[in-house]
Design a protein around this nucleic acid. Structure first.
Lengths: 144, 144
DNA sequence: TTAATAAAAGATAAAATTGTCCTTTATTAA
DNA sequence: TTAATAAAGGACAATTTTATCTTTTATTAA
């Protein structure tokens, strides 16, 4: 469904958010450990998230990654997905046609549109805050 | 969403079905042309579909691919997806966790389960027949 | 101002997916 | 029984994605 870059990015964002809610800035090593992802690859993904303004980074001793507390509720999962793999997931034709649209649809067009819209709505209406809270109270988990 | 192998395979199956409904056996070249896919790669995918018993093939002059007419309505799109990329799409954790389940869920577990179930249901309840019919009456299309 | 720390950036490398080409096998018809 | 046809199979190549390693830049504290 999603690329690894994307799921690692979502997991990383949730972890950073959950720590930011507790005023903790977190470093790469800690992130990779807590979401169980390859360190260097995770670093690349974090760079993207920083570039897209989803995550803030601070260099040097005591540096690391964080998300402004008051923004955590505004950031939706859709933004993370968009910045790591574009919005093709909700827009592209399910059967891979370039010019698939309601006037010249592929055989799965309508059925796929329904699914994609569900997905789009789900991602756009789910905030980092609610997911980070689940992790904080240990009702949900980011590894294993 | 789906791999190219998978979408090419679905398009090929629909095309073969639509031709089989008209009693036409079709060759690789014609298939690749009509669904606009790379010929040799399409051949590999067709081999998979033949191995999985979804498509029948006949070698030699006037040979080609076909699907038994009476089976076209029984074959669901889910079978094609299963044979070309396994059932991970409806089963695997949306955030890529190995052991994600309701007793130790990832943060998106429930929301993802809903989407995946929609997708699963859609693929399992859609037959090759209805999609092939749409192509035959030119209300849906397999290329461009 | 220097040493230590940690992210950013760049260059590669490995693996997976996608795509091509060539040979073999089966079938048909002349 | 031979020539032509078309799929099957195997080897290989290109591209994309995933992953690693090294160097540079920024920041902090001693």
């Amino acid at each position: 469904m999603f690329s690894k870059a994307c799921v690692y990015g979502i997991r990383a964002s949730i972890f950073i958010a959950s720590q930011s809610l507790k005023q903790n800035r977190v470093g790469l090593i800690s992130i990779a450990e807590n979401i169980q992802t390859p360190e260097a690859f995770t670093a690349k993904i974090l760079q993207q998230l920083v570039k897209h303004g989803i995550v803030d980074s601070v260099k040097g001793p005591a540096g690391g990654f964080q998300i402004e507390k008051k923004r955590i509720n505004d950031i939706k999962i859709s933004e993370i997905v968009d910045s790591l793999e574009g919005n093709d997931i909700y827009l592209a034709c399910g059967l891979g046609l370039k010019n698939c649209n309601s006037s010249k649809p592929c055989p799965l067009h309508d059925k796929f549109a329904a699914i994609r819209n569900n997905l789009k709505y789900m991602l756009e209406s789910t905030s980092l805050y609610e997911l980070a809270m689940g992790v904080d109270i240990e009702s949900t988990f980011l590894k294993r």
